[in-house]
């Protein structure tokens, strides 16, 4: 009988796929809003990026302009300066500041009083959750000529300094502020690696008569090697970022020339000056190089340490 034959024959893979899709249709419906969101608010902007090759017209069709805007970028002396600012600030935040979070985690672990340690932890995580506007408000206030920092230096007979408008100080301020904001939060990954260390390793070191420094050197640091490698490599992926929100909120006319970074520049020429095509071209360059950087660091880190960005 035909019916029986058909049932016995294994269904084609195409038919099986269709059946499976139909069975899972609720799942795809649950996914749909998210996918639609990304298509509208991410894929559509990606299509809009072609503006980098066009002159913008508000009401009419854009006019093809070829590489004009890219040539403008590379010919502009401004571009080199902004790229340098970005790389310097990134270096300070992602490389110079890097050991501070590791050291803080080690110090937390060294604290004998659990109560005090927990208090320090609770306090140190808090700045991470404050908005950049609030953080800028706090720091600008602290560094004001009548603020807390100048009150303290006055005790040592120093004349008040306007730190926020000092070109030589501002990049260090950005770095310190980033350290202040992330000290607790960014040390969590190291602290959890430390508390995961097998107790018996400490006991063995104790039996061998190791002192605290030797224990840190031979027991704690080896356990931190993997998270440190991961975090360091991943940091390199964000080198073109340098912290848009921080710069945007803490900058002022006196110091902007030394802390103007790619993202703040793109924001200014794009939305403040309305040079849409130029801003898009620059955003495209940054987006492509940035994505390649993050992908490279992710793959490298995954190979070396087993963990990456996701």
């Amino acid at each position: 009988m035909t019916n029986g034959l058909q049932a016995a024959k294994p269904k084609s893979s195409r038919a099986r796929k269709l059946a499976k899709l139909r069975a899972d249709r609720i799942l795809y419906l649950m996914l749909a809003p998210t996918l639609v969101y990304f298509i509208i608010f991410r894929v559509w902007p990606i299509i809009n990026m072609r503006l980098a090759f066009y002159d913008f017209k508000a009401k009419k069709a854009w006019v093809f302009a070829g590489m004009k805007y890219f040539n403008t970028i590379f010919a502009s002396p401004q571009f080199g300066k902004i790229l340098t600012n970005t790389l310097i600030i990134s270096f300070m935040k992602y490389v110079l500041l890097f050991p501070v979070f590791v050291i803080f985690a080690i110090l937390l672990n060294e604290m004998r009083s659990v109560r005090l340690r927990k208090t320090v932890q609770v306090v140190s995580y808090l700045p991470h959750f404050l908005s950049w506007v609030v953080i800028a408000g706090i720091w600008i206030g602290m560094l004001d000529t009548t603020g807390a920092v100048n009150q303290l230096t006055a005790l040592f007979g120093q004349a008040p300094v306007n730190y926020m408008t000092s070109k030589s100080a501002i990049r260090w301020i950005l770095m310190l502020c980033e350290g202040w904001r992330s000290l607790g939060w960014d040390s969590i990954v190291y602290f959890t690696a430390i508390i995961a260390i097998d107790r018996s390793l400490y006991e063995a070191a104790d039996v061998d008569g190791a002192n605290r420094l030797q224990i840190i050197r031979y027991v704690v640091l080896p356990a931190l090697l993997v998270p440190m490698t991961t975090m360091f490599i991943l940091n390199l992926g964000y080198f073109l970022n340098a912290g848009f929100d921080q710069v945007l909120n803490m900058t002022n006319d006196s110091v902007n020339s030394v802390i103007d970074i790619l993202d703040t520049y793109i924001y200014r020429i794009g939305l403040e000056k309305g040079q849409y095509s130029l801003a898009t071209a620059m955003g495209m360059l940054k987006g492509i190089v940035g994505t390649v950087l993050v992908l490279t660091t992710h793959v490298t880190s995954k190979k070396l340490t087993g963990s990456g960005v996701w």
């Binding site: 902007p45 990026m49 939305l271 849409y276 898009t280 987006g287 994505t291």
Partner: peptide, 15 residues
Amino acid sequence: IMMLFDPGLVPEYLV
């Protein structure tokens, strides 16, 4: 890809 690639400010603004 959506997470990694940032199309930038102006393209989003236009949408």
